[in-house]
Nucleic acid binder design. Structure first.
Ligand SMILES: [Mn+2]
Ligand SMILES: [Mn+2]
Ligand SMILES: [Zn+2]
Ligand SMILES: [Zn+2]
Lengths: 142, 142
DNA sequence: CCGTTAAATGAAACCCATTATCAATAGAAC
DNA sequence: GTTCTATTGATAATGGGTTTCATTTAACGG
């Protein structure tokens, strides 16, 4: 309940003359309770299970807020809807996506990261963000 | 005009009981003449400059055909529209995208590719495709 | 060359995730 | 409480992409 993440959101909110609301707390709670790569619609279902009157637009707006405040990162695996994952206290990682069952495996390969910087520098390019998505078949779907 | 690519398209078309049309030839020509990472709307403008009566839907349909026949690959840099590039006789590569001017730099780093396979194998994951996008600032926009 | 047949076309309607609008509601500060 | 504004939910709008459908046209045989 009184999570460190709620503090982060409250800080962001007060620093921007926004307001803490019942709905925003509900969306944050549902987001934090869910350890998956969740879509807005997914989260809408989770939120309305606890707070039936919350609107879908509010979920979208709160997800933007969570992203801006550094609590969530926005992901796009190219399937037509964005997904969100925890960002607070979570290091960078990339994703393997099983095209059979939808399972997502996270990984981080320091050398891949290093060589990315290397090839960028070689081209005079300054990286601000990157994403590496690998699609295929997971071990359970072979 | 009588390109190897036209042969590839004609082969695909005859093998699938489809038909070569004036519009398909026009879309293919515009696509081949353009060396950029082009959106459907971009290509529509290029095509209609030469063949004003071609419809946007036909451009979309022909792009699907080019993708299926191996002449084009579909790219998604997350900006809300798909882009297409030459695939025939073009090796795999990844992209750096300048968020300032839109410039796209292609690169291929064999070790990055190798470590991707490695980390996938370590997780029992079989890669069927992958994409690595690096966003940032190019040398001319620094 | 026709005639036949099925694929292709263009215009317009539709789809669907996401965003914008707006009148009503409710935090926050005094 | 009162006031001031941000927020909300319902709904409309947006925009890239796809589907529909009546009409056109490529392909094939005769
Ligand atoms: Mn993740
Ligand atoms: Mn490319
Ligand atoms: Zn799987
Ligand atoms: Zn640039």
């Amino acid at each position: 309940m009184a999570s460190k993440e709620l503090e982060v959101l409250e800080d962001y909110i007060t620093q921007n003359n926004l307001k803490i609301t019942r709905q925003r707390r509900a969306v944050l709670k549902a987001f934090l309770d869910c350890e998956e790569h969740v879509s807005a619609e997914d989260l809408y279902r989770l939120v309305t299970a606890a707070e039936p009157k919350v609107g879908l637009a509010t979920v979208y707006r709160t997800l933007a807020l969570l992203t801006q405040s550094g609590l969530a990162s926005e992901l796009d695996f190219g399937d037509g809807q964005k997904r969100y994952e925890h960002k607070y206290m979570h290091g960078h990682h990339d994703h393997m996506i099983c095209t059979e069952c939808g399972k997502i495996i996270e990984f981080n390969h320091p050398l891949i990261e290093k060589f990315q910087e290397e090839v960028a520098a070689r081209n005079g390019f300054t990286i601000t963000s990157h994403k590496l998505d690998m699609f295929g078949i997971c071990s359970e779907c072979r």
